[in-house]
């Protein structure tokens, strides 16, 4: 079999394992959906009445939750699963077969693609049907959604795989989730980016999550809100450029640092 067919087979296996792991399904797959529902209910009164141009809590938080979903299904899932597989010998076992290494990575990419697309679909459905959030209007916004979404996923996947080498299975959870939570708070996922102090905004700008969230705001929010951004506009072009740079840089990092065996074993 060629690498592509094996990659497809690996994808099937990865999706099977993912869907059977309840913790993963809850904390990375359903989490943004639950948070969207929760935030929409909790903050609904703050958006009632006044002249806020039809803005609702659900519409306001949807871009952040889509961005969080991208990072959770790509970066978090990859960092956790690859670190675990390196430690428990799964990678060594795969390396002992004639499977081309690229098939393993294709399987990971396939897993991320399947879980993130399904997650996005559910997020949009819930937002639309339960909270009456208008879907993006016009081909331009959908194209931007596709661009930010896929570049964010590629970057998150390769960076997650590279990040997995930083720690062992025992502590990778803390090493991944801690910094990621901080980034979510300063990147405009849970708290409006405009409410974040400027120096923290600048720190957040060094990482991809801020750009994914900004891109998603450009997709889902009315253009009138663009002036509230750091640059006074959505900066769609810069968003795509920064995310592409992260994806390429992450790929190089991933390829140069990847290890099949756990530290000290070989």
């Amino acid at each position: 079999m060629n690498a592509l067919a094996l990659g497809l087979d690996r994808t099937r296996l990865e999706v099977k394992m993912y869907s059977r792991e309840k913790e993963a399904v809850f904390f990375s797959f359903l989490f943004p959906i639950l948070l969207l529902a929760l935030f929409s209910v909790i903050f609904s009164s703050q958006f009632e009445g006044g002249d806020n141009g039809g803005m609702t809590a659900a519409r306001y938080f949807l871009p952040g939750m889509v961005a969080a979903g991208v990072i959770l299904t790509s970066f978090q899932t990859m960092a956790l699963s690859v670190a675990t597989e390196r430690d428990d010998g799964s990678l060594k076992r795969l390396r002992s077969t004639p499977m081309p290494p690229v098939a393993y990575f294709l399987g990971k990419v396939g897993l991320v693609a399947v879980t993130s697309v399904v997650q996005l679909a559910i997020l949009l459905l819930v937002a639309r049907l339960a909270f009456d959030v208008p879907l993006p209007s016009g081909a331009g916004r959908w194209a931007l959604l596709a661009g930010v979404f896929s570049l964010g996923l590629v970057g998150g996947t390769v960076l997650g795989i590279a990040y997995s080498s930083l720690s062992t299975a025992r502590s990778i959870g803390a090493v991944v989730i801690g910094p990621q939570l901080v980034l979510q708070f300063i990147s405009g996922v849970y708290i409006a980016f405009t409410d974040v102090p400027q120096w923290l905004q600048q720190i957040a700008s060094l990482f991809p999550l801020k750009w994914i969230a900004q891109g998603m705001r450009a997709v889902f929010l009315p253009d009138g809100l663009a002036q509230a951004e750091m640059a006074g506009s959505w900066e769609q072009g810069r968003v795509l450029l920064v995310l592409a740079a992260w994806a390429v840089g992450g790929l190089v990092l991933c390829v140069t640092t990847f290890k099949w065996f756990k530290r000290g074993s070989v």
Binding site: M1, L13, M17, D87, S90
Partner: peptide, 19 residues
């Protein structure tokens, strides 16, 4: 061989055999 807990022997063998 760790990391196989969530699969069945048939699933993991079938996938390995394909290599």
């Amino acid at each position: 061989s760790g990391g196989l807990d969530l699969l069945t022997p048939r699933e993991i063998l079938r996938s390995t055999a394909r290599c």
